[in-house]
Design a protein around this nucleic acid. Structure first.
Length: 829
RNA sequence: GCCCGAGUGGUGGAAUGGUAGACACGGAGGACUUAAAAUCCUCUGCCCUCAACCGGCGUGUGGGUUCGAGUCCCACCUCGGGCACCA
């Protein structure tokens, strides 16, 4: 019979055909939570759909997770592999300001565009679960979670969040006595006092306990633009920070904000990192960010020449150096300084210093010159509780108000910064013996405490394009929640997206909005992304953020893939929210993302970052058009280790395209009953290798092992059965061509719903091996010998080799080390 | 400054303490072709050599451990990332 002439490989036609087929047949539809199958949740960090579009580096992570998800699907798991869009945010807002158009339709357009770009790459997403954070059906639940946080406090005894009602009940019963809570207030009161407080006073007190609370924070304020700027919108100017747009000066300004009391979870966030299968670097970054340090709080009495005027508590990790204290320093913002002004003899100088510090922005204050500045509070002394010594009291801006207690003890002998400060102002430097940290802390009535660098997170933006905060400020000053059944509180239409000029959000200019007293701040970009992975579990549920059944079945993300740049943002906030939901019994597990992998960036061929500016951007659509999605996918996986930063190579992709074409051509040459042992052996080795490599995210070596396999097939021929197994291995990487060839070989069902091949261990046992023969550690010969040869027979065979004999003729053998299957080393002299 | 991570051919990279450079790109030569493209075959770390053999060198630098080090240890250099007066 004349062999059928294979049609030319037309990637455009084939890829379009199969993408349509998959969509029509629901090939990748996830089974519901009632499935008997084991679950596997493989997730990509959802993108922000920006107008700039995709470059070739963006899909790398998506391809990897898709390969992983496809293998798991073929292995028989019920795979949840969804995609959605993080669609609130600054760029759409800026677009709205510039065009004076609502950012909604613009965002929808971008989402559609983005989705299209993703679709042509052939991902196995279940698009029926798509979410977008800007849609009211979605942000209804973001608001709902916010209200839960608002209505919660943190009990340090039970070490979990509890409803605020329980705190109120405690206050009513005993006041603050026996209340163990994370709070920024030191105020204490009795039950009787609590009941005597007005509603407004009670509200204010509770605000210091809530996990979502109102407070003040410094923001970047630009007077000329009349708006608050994000750090991204600020650049370095010649005389300080300026706005990116217009180059106007930017200063710090204190404004009303909403916060998340993430610090309540600091310890658990640090602790629970241990059990996660995450890259070490990300765990380290989070650990450093949380910045746990254990130390002591020790009180120093503050006196004037004749009277006691108070005390200052310092935080130190070096209580053992307490005897070496020669001064104490307060942050310039330290709260009691003003109260003491009558006792301070150089008050005007002090005042001047405080003012000069407040005018410095952060950049200046932490700038490179590092010259320490400070002023002594003359007229005051502090008493070292360890030995009663009087030491001077200073203020200096190297002490931060918002870390520790805002006060430190100066021990120049043991601390570099204190040393620099002491040298500068000629303060004494004394060498005293060290003592036991814990003992001395107890002896001076101090406390052992744990402190964290991490601060509470600001949870408000003075912007339009974000989730409205579902609270109302009533005329009497009370705050009321938008009731659950009234959610979502949808964004009103506005006439102008320009900032209001006084720093408030555009919502502040909507009369209908402010009449009702609605909060004018909106939520920050990270609100919607902090829980979206839960919504995918049950994306259309109108009664809950996700149904109990779905949450219990899917539990957590098994494999999360995305960029490392989210280490201290999204990945931390999501863990925080998840732990909160766990405390409130809404989710069954403590951590949202069991395993995490970070893709490395793909740079331009010139080694620079891919950007319009350098003109080195490669668009995936063009690559798909020219080479095909399968070639693109294969190449991005082959390029190098998944987590490495790599340059794009337009020349390199030709290799992947050639490989795919060779698979195509070989398909026309498989013979039903061809038996080539060589090919079967290599195939089964490849099955083992590819399976392990995908599991380990070592995609580059998985691809290269398939290339090796194909080389052997071409040389030795391949049976249809073996070739089909090979196609199954290749299917996660090149889903279109493999489904095409699979169906051409007579299969009716998609290859992606077929099983994952397993290897036959018997075929992996080799009869013969070639090992290196070393003399004094240098390879001098090779030896081919039965794989199961004994050490003795390997040794004698090696010693009998002519080349070896030649070498040894002038030497005597001292020792022989045989590593079966690997190497033999003859030590001689 | 502190904390991570990485340095291997012309290029991207491979290598459970066991024959360094798999696989691929690029390059050289050849086959097919009137020719080109595509495809196929051979070679391709560096030095020595007309060439091959042989030999020598070789995984950022310098030491060390080991029969044996790209891999482990110490010091240093360079690059990337994170934090940055956090007491």
């Amino acid at each position: 019979m004349k062999p059928k002439k294979a049609p030319v490989y037309n990637h455009l036609k084939i890829e379009k055909k199969w993408q349509k087929e998959w969509a029509e047949n629901g090939t990748y539809k996830t089974e519901p939570a009632t499935s008997k199958k084991k679950k596997m949740y493989v997730l990509d960090m959802f993108p922000y759909p920006s107008g700039a579009g995709l470059h070739v580096g963006h899909p790398r992570g998506y391809i990897a997770s898709d390969v992983y998800a496809r293998m798991k699907r073929m292995e028989g798991f019920n795979v949840l592999h969804p995609m959605g869009f993080d669609s609130f945010g600054l760029p759409a807002e800026q677009y709205a300001i510039q065009t004076k158009k609502h950012p909604g339709p613009f965002t929808d357009k971008l989402v559609a565009q983005y989705k299209k770009q993703l679709e042509i790459i052939g991902f196995s997403y279940d698009w029926s679960r798509e979410v977008s954070t800007h849609r009211p059906e979605y942000y209804k639940w973001t608001q709902w979670i916010f209200l839960k946080l608002y209505d919660a406090w943190y009990d340090t005894k039970k070490n979990k969040a509890l409803p605020i009602d329980e705190l109120v009940a405690l206050f009513e019963k005993n006041g603050t006595k026996n209340v163990h809570a994370v709070t920024d207030s030191a105020e204490t009161f009795s039950a009787k006092e609590w009941k005597s407080f007005s509603q407004l006073e009670q509200q204010e007190i509770l605000m210091h306990y809530r996990l979502a609370y109102e407070g003040f924070a410094e923001v970047n304020w630009c007077e000329e633009l009349g708006t608050v700027l994000a750090n991204d919108e600020i650049v370095d100017g010649p005389t300080g920070p300026v706005s990116e747009r217009g180059g106007f000066p930017v200063i710090k300004k204190s404004m009303r904000q909403w916060f998340m009391r993430i610090t309540a979870y600091a310890d658990r966030l640090a602790q629970d990192l241990e059990g996660l299968d995450w890259p070490n670097s990300i765990k380290e970054i989070q650990k450093n960010w949380i910045g746990k340090s254990e130390g002591s709080e020790i009180s120093f009495e503050i006196k004037t020449a004749d009277s006691d005027i108070g005390e200052v508590s310092v935080f130190t990790t070096r209580a053992d150096t307490l005897f070496g204290v020669t001064y104490i320093v307060l942050a310039p913002e330290y709260p009691f300084i003003e109260e003491w002004q009558n006792s301070i003899t150089n008050w005007s100088e002090v005042q001047k210093y405080i003012k000069s510090v407040s005018q410095k922005d952060e950049m200046e204050r932490t700038s490179a010159d590092k010259q320490k500045t400070g002023v002594q509070l003359k007229g005051l002394v502090a008493i070292n509780p360890a030995n009663g010594e009087e030491v001077p009291v200073w203020i200096a801006d190297y002490v931060l108000a918002n870390y520790g207690t805002g006060a430190v003890m100066g021990v120049p002998q043991h601390d570099e910064r204190d040393y620099a400060f002491a040298t500068q102002y000629k303060l004494p430097i004394i060498d005293r013996p060290l003592v036991d940290k814990i003992e001395i802390t107890k002896k001076v009535d101090g406390k052992i405490v744990t402190r964290y660098k991490m601060r509470d997170a600001i949870f408000a933006r003075q912007r339009y394009w974000g989730e409205p905060i579902p609270l109302r400020h009533l005329a009497n000053g009370l705050i009321s929640e938008v009731p659950e059944k009234k959610l979502p509180l949808t964004l009103p239409n506005v006439k102008s997206y320009e900032p209001s000029g006084n720093g408030e959000s555009p919502l502040a200019r909507v009369a209908a909005w402010t009449k009702e007293g609605y909060e004018t701040n909106t939520m920050p970009g990270w609100a919607g992304s902090s829980w979206y992975f839960l919504r995918y579990m049950d994306p259309t549920n109108a009664k809950a953020f996700a149904g109990q059944k779905a949450v219990d079945y899917w539990k957590d993300v098994d494999m999360y893939v995305g960029g490392a740049e989210h280490a201290t943002g999204h990945l931390l906030y999501s863990r925080f929210w998840h732990k909160f939901l766990y405390d409130m019994n809404y989710v069954p597990v403590k951590e949202p993302f069991k395993a995490l992998r970070n893709q490395g960036l793909i740079g331009g061929a010139d080694g620079r970052k891919m950007s319009k500016r350098w003109g080195n951007v490669i668009n995936p659509d063009d690559v798909v058009k020219t080479y095909g999605a399968d070639s693109l996918r294969l190449f991005e996986m082959f390029l190098g280790p998944f987590e490495s930063h790599l340059p794009w190579s337009t020349e390199g992709i030709i290799g992947s395209r050639r490989f795919i074409e060779r698979v195509w051509r070989l398909s026309g040459r498989v013979r039903e009953n061809h038996s080539a042992r060589e090919s079967s052996v290599i195939l089964h080795k490849t099955i083992k290798k590819v399976t392990e490599d995908i599991q380990n995210f070592a995609f580059n070596t998985a691809v290269s092992s398939m290339m090796i396999c194909l080389n052997e097939f071409e040389k030795s021929g391949v049976s249809e059965k073996d070739f089909k197994m090979f196609l199954q291995l290749l299917a996660p990487f090149a889903p279109h061509i493999t489904d095409e060839l699979w169906s051409e070989l007579g299969e009716k069902k998609s290859i992606h719903l077929s099983g994952w091949p397993t290897y036959n261990p018997k075929l992996l046992i080799e009869d013969e091996v070639t090992i290196g023969v070393q003399i004094n550690g240098k390879v001098r010969a090779e030896l081919t010998i039965a794989a199961d040869a004994s050490k003795e027979s390997i040794e004698s065979a090696a010693l009998a080799l002519p080349r070896v004999q030649e070498y040894l003729s002038t030497m005597t053998v001292k020792k022989v080390i045989v590593v079966p299957g690997r190497v033999i080393n003859i030590v001689a002299q």
